[in-house]
Amino acid sequence: MSSSTELTEKKVFLLKSLDGVIFEVEESVAVQLEVIRELIEGDCARPFISLYNVTSEILALVIEYCKHHAETCSGGTSATIADEDLKTFDNEFMNVDENILLELCSAADYLDIKSLFELTCRTLASLIKDRTIIEVRKMFNVENDFSVVEEKAVRKEFAWAFK
């Protein structure tokens, strides 16, 4: 971590999760949450911000993600090295339980963190990709609401996709 900015006073924000846990974050991290950046730009940001839809477990992960991205982007390394570093970090970061992945996706949507939202959507899609229909239903706990006849018709319509 760079120590050059240590001397200047950093602006910090306190983010409160759904279950009441308070996280202290620097402005460089907070602005990655588009919801908060909008508040800051509109000059309505209070130092204490409640995030009603995000649990502390998820918020901790979100902050870890934003912190790493903020540090890497301002770290003074070349763009290609930073890109590689972020890619490696993102891959490892996505190595989580499917439940957490979905909550992260929802949180990234709610907090409006575009890169994290895209990353989680892409990862969820890759989980779907290699599974059969039955496995997908089971995995995502989706109920099959087609009748036997309807399902047969849909499969017939896109028969080519099954080959």
Binding site: C105, D109, F117, C121, R122, L124, A125, S126, I128, K129, I133, V136, R137, V142, E143, N144, D145, F146, E151, V154, R155, E157, F158, W160, A161, F162
Partner: peptide
């Protein structure tokens, strides 16, 4: 948004999920 990332064949295969 999640489904938009699926490859084309996978997307159409998964239209029979629900």
């Amino acid at each position: 948004r999640v489904l938009s990332w699926l490859p084309t064949s996978t997307f159409f295969r998964n239209t029979s999920v629900c």
